[in-house]
Every structure is written in C-alpha cells, then in structure tokens.
Design a protein around this nucleic acid. Structure first.
Lengths: 188, 188
DNA sequence: CGGAAACTAAATTTGTAAATTCAGTTTCCG
DNA sequence: CGGAAACTGAATTTACAAATTTAGTTTCCG
C-alpha cells in the first residue's frame, strides 16, 4: 500500500500535471503541495519514479472500481457490461489522458507501463462481453477488437477540447450516449 | 467541368501527396507525371490553387457517388443510409485524409474549404437519418451529433497505420463493421 | 526531521547566420 | 506548343553557440 505522504505527492503531481502537462517541474509540484523538494526526493528517487507510480496509482483506482462492479451481485451481464464500460471513461477524468500519451517520447518506460495497464484493463471487459455472447445478448459475429478500437477512438475524441461546446448536454451524458450506441451496436 | 490535362495533374498530385504528404514539391509532381513544371504552371496559378482544386476534385467525386445513392430507387431508407455511410470511407481511401488535415497551418484557405465540404457532405446523411427517425427505424432519442463524432473518430483511427495489422480481415470488412455497429447502435 | 534557498551539472530553449530547398520564371531548343 | 534545364529570390532547414531552465544535491537553520 501507499503511505500517506507518497499518496499526497502523487495527488499533487496529478493536479499539476493536469494544469501544466508534461512540462511540469519538481518545483511546481513542491509549490503546489507547499512542501520542499527535499521531502519529495526523500520519497521518490526522481521524476521517472513519480511518473511511473502516478500511472500505477491512477490505474489501481480504476481497477478497484472495476473489481467492485464485477463482484457485485444483483446485476445481469448486460448491466455489468454497461457499468463497466461507463466506469472506464469516468475514471479517466481524474487525469488528462491526452497528456499522458505525450509521455511517449521522454518517458518511454512510463508509456509502456501505461499501454500495458490499458491493455490489461480491457481484459475483464472482454471476458464480460464474451460471456454476453454466450448468453446470447451480444451478437455472435460482433468483432470485439473493432468495438474496442471504436470506443477508444470515440472517448479520446471526447477528451479533446471543444468537441461538445455549444451544447446543453452534460459531460457524463455524452459518455453514456457513446457507451449506449456502441453497446447497442453489438447487442443481439 | 475539368479539362483532361487539369484532371491528369490533379490525379498526379494526389498520387504524390499520398506518398510524400504535405511536403511534396512541384518538381515531384512534374516528375511523377513526366511533364515539365511549365505545363503545370500554364494550368494552375500555383501550389495553392492546385491544392484547392484537389480538395474540390476529391469531394466532387464523393458527392457524385452520394447523389447516385440518394436518387436510386428500390432502396429502403435504412439501406440508403447504410450505402451512404459506407460510401464515405470508401471514397476517403483515394486520398490520405490524415495528411489533408496537416494542410491546416500552411494552407488555411484549403483547410477551410476541406472543413466546409466535410460539413456539407454530412448534410444529406443527416437528412436520411432524420427521415429514418420519422419512419421509426432510428431511435427517436439518438443523438446524431454524437453519432457523427463517433463515426469520424472511428474512421480516422482506421486510416491511421497498423490498426488492423495481424488480422485476416480485409480493409473494407473493417469499415463495414464500423458502419454496422454505429448504425445498429442508433437503430430502434 | 523538514523548510528555505543556494548551488551545480546537465538538459532544454533561443537566437541566428550559413546552407539548402523550392516556387515560380526564363531561356533555349526541337 | 511543350520539354529540359538553368536561374533567382524567398522560404525553409541546419548547425551551433549563448542563454535559460531544471533535476537533483547540499547547506544552513529552527
């Protein structure tokens, strides 16, 4: 588990990351948290380790949320799928994903971890969807790989700026509509 | 209408554009067509005009294709919608769209024309979809604006490289599956 | 211990002058 | 007329040194 001080630093880093993006400095983080850099360096070996731990932190939270849904009783498979898919984008809201991808060049190790965790994060969704196929509520011939690509592309587009300006709809309504259309699209 | 020589130059330009992208030179085009630059400059005032005419050329072809579908008899509304939506990405295959967007900075006028034609290209699709709503085959509460964003995001992702490597599926099968899922997703 | 602030070496950004490329024109030639 | 090739000024790219920023450390202090 995470110590209190480490979690505090991670939360602060995410704060600053969402504001200043990849270009955040250690001084930024220290200022944000009103602690000195010394404290940060006592907990983390450097910027690389902070970023790596940050990715783990974000995805561990998503994973916990997903586990909750998977283990909960009283939901049908289709309800679980819907909850599960909706949980993904909601969790992503905590951190600027577009910006996370920009770590690719300067922090390839962090980027690889990000990709790996995105991949494993989808695994239980695939399991649920396969189960849905067996139960006959998902179309047998639905291509789940394409489904995944479409969902990722659509969500990423929504995370970009100005996509939904000039509309009265709320952010979450959009995400739900995306999940609805896609899930409907592969339903039997 | 387009003279033969102008069309030849446009086709050659698209050829080179798909290979070298935004950075194509007039010499490239002349070499590709095995004509001299002089001939090109006799037909076009310059690079700007070629790019502009190129966008018109591409979209006029798409438009003709779409008109054909719209005016054809013997199709139900839903069939027309499916044909119409499938025609879009197929037409896009003739030119590298990802690269077209990169004209934004250096050729803002061309980019604006591109955006305008993309917008007006969607208009008949919206009309068909609205008609589908009236006929009760499209969900009344389906958000067509989101539908459009999802379709664009999904198709653009497929136009990027390596999305479907390692699969036996053919390119067009993918595009059809995308249209299927989305259309199913908003169907009543 | 931990904060404030100074410090250093390395990385990043900036400015810019030289080198290269390219759009558009011109010349010569068949 | 149109091809081949040379030409020019403007734009773009390259190269590189100077200036700035920043990661990580150290010092001093309460």
């Amino acid at each position: 588990m995470l110590t209190e001080i480490r979690e505090k630093i991670l939360k602060g880093t995410i704060q600053v990351f969402n504001k200043k993006g990849l270009k955040l400095t250690m001084d930024d983080v220290a200022d944000e948290l009103k602690i000195s850099k010394k404290t940060i360096y006592k907990e983390f070996s450097g910027k690389d380790e902070i970023f790596e731990t940050m990715v783990d932190y974000v995805f561990d939270n998503i994973k916990a949320r997903e586990k909750e849904i998977l283990n909960s009783d009283g939901y049908t498979t289709i309800e679980k799928i819907r909850l599960f898919l909706s949980a993904m984008p909601e969790s992503y809201r905590n951190i600027n994903f577009q910006e996370l991808y920009s770590l690719k060049d300067k922090y390839p190790k962090v980027y690889k971890k990000l990709q790996k965790r995105l991949e494993t994060g989808w695994a239980p969704a695939f399991k649920l969807l396969e189960q849905g196929k067996e139960e006959g509520i998902i179309r047998q011939d639905a291509d789940l790989k394409i489904f995944k690509i479409m969902m990722e592309a659509s969500l990423e587009r929504f995370f970009e700026k100005n996509v939904m300006k000039g509309s009265s709809k709320k952010y979450n309504d959009y995400l739900n509509e995306v999940v609805d259309i896609l899930l409907n699209g592969i339903s039997a």
